[in-house]
Design a protein around this nucleic acid. Structure first.
Length: 250
DNA sequence: CGAGTTTGACCTGCGC
DNA sequence: GCGCAGGTCAAACTCG
C-alpha cells in the first residue's frame, strides 16, 4: 500500500517535471525561432555589405573613385547598445581612438564625446559618440572622414601593452563591432551588454538540447552559438568587414 | 615618464 | 553685429 502511494507520488512528480520541461520546450522553441530570424537578418545585412564592398572595389579598380550609387555621402551613423550603467562613451569598432573633447549639447542632456583616429599619424577620421535621447542604453556614433590605413594596422594595438587607457587590454581584438546604419535605413542595434547574466539561458539551451534535440539539430545550434558568440575569428572578421565598410562608405 | 583623458577656454558658423 | 551652439585646442591631470 505504502509502495503504491510512493509510486503515485513519484508519478506525480514526474508529471510535474514533464509539464515544466514542456513549458521550457515551448519557450526554447520560440527562442530558437527568434534566433533564426535574427540570424537571417544578420546574414542579409552581411550580404548587403559584401555587395556594397564589391561595387566600391570595382569602382576603384576602374581607376576613378566613383561613389557607389547606393552609398550615402552623409556621415555614417551607428547605433550600439551598451550597458546603461557604463558611463564611458566608447564604441569598440576595432580602431584605436583618441578623445579630444567632450561637450553637452542643447538637444541632448548626455555629453557628446569627440574622438580622432590614433592608429595612424595621418589619419583624419573623426567620430562623435553620444547617448540616444530616446534610449540611454544606446550609443550613437557618427563617423566622418576616411581611414588612410588598414584595420590590420591594429595588430599593434592588439598586442601592445600601451593601448588605450580605460579599455581593457585585448578588448579591441575580441569586441564585437557595431552595426552600420545610414539615414535611409532602419537603425540596427548591436547589444554589447551581453554578460554572465545570460548564462542561465545558455544552460537552458544545453538542457533543451540534451532532452529534446536530435544530434543534427544539436550540432546546428552548437554551430550557430559557437560561430556567433565564441569564435574570435568570426568577430575579428566581422570587425574588419565593418571597418572596411566605414572606410569606403564615408 | 609617456600616452591618454578631462575640461574650461577659445574659435567658427549660422540665424536673427 | 550679437548671441548661441557645436567643434576644437591645450594645459592639467591620471594612470600604468
Amino acid at each position: 500500500m505504502e509502495a503504491h502511494s510512493t509510486c503515485e507520488r513519484k508519478e506525480e512528480t514526474l508529471r510535474a517535471e514533464v509539464k515544466l520541461l514542456e513549458r521550457d520546450n515551448e519557450a526554447l522553441r520560440l527562442m530558437l525561432e527568434v534566433m533564426n530570424k535574427k540570424l537571417d537578418t544578420l546574414q542579409s545585412h552581411l550580404q548587403e555589405m559584401k555587395e556594397g564592398q564589391m561595387r566600391i572595389n570595382l569602382n576603384q579598380i576602374n581607376g576613378s573613385i566613383v561613389e557607389a550609387p547606393t552609398v550615402s555621402k552623409k556621415p555614417l551613423q551607428i547605433f550600439v547598445r551598451t550597458d546603461p550603467n557604463d558611463n564611458s562613451l566608447t564604441v569598440k569598432d576595432g580602431y584605436q581612438w583618441r578623445k579630444y573633447g567632450q561637450k553637452v549639447t542643447k538637444d541632448n542632456s548626455s555629453p557628446r564625446a569627440y574622438f580622432r583616429c590614433s592608429m595612424a599619424p595621418g589619419c583624419c577620421v573623426k567620430k562623435k559618440v553620444q547617448r540616444s535621447i530616446r534610449d540611454k542604453s544606446i550609443l550613437v556614433a557618427t563617423y566622418e572622414g576616411e581611414h588612410n590605413h588598414d584595420l590590420h594596422d591594429n595588430s599593434l594595438c592588439q598586442t601592445s601593452s600601451s593601448t588605450t587607457r580605460g579599455i581593457p587590454k585585448g578588448s579591441m581584438a575580441s569586441c564585437p563591432p557595431p552595426v552600420m546604419a545610414d539615414d535611409n535605413s532602419e537603425p540596427v542595434i548591436l547589444d554589447l551588454s551581453l554578460s554572465a547574466s545570460h548564462q542561465p539561458c545558455r544552460r537552458h539551451t544545453e538542457n533543451f538540447d540534451q532532452q529534446y534535440c536530435s544530434p543534427s539539430s544539436q550540432n546546428k545550434i552548437q554551430e550557430f552559438v559557437d560561430s556567433l558568440v565564441k569564435d574570435p575569428n568570426f568577430t575579428v572578421a566581422l570587425a574588419e568587414a565593418v571597418a572596411r565598410s566605414i572606410t569606403n562608405q564615408t
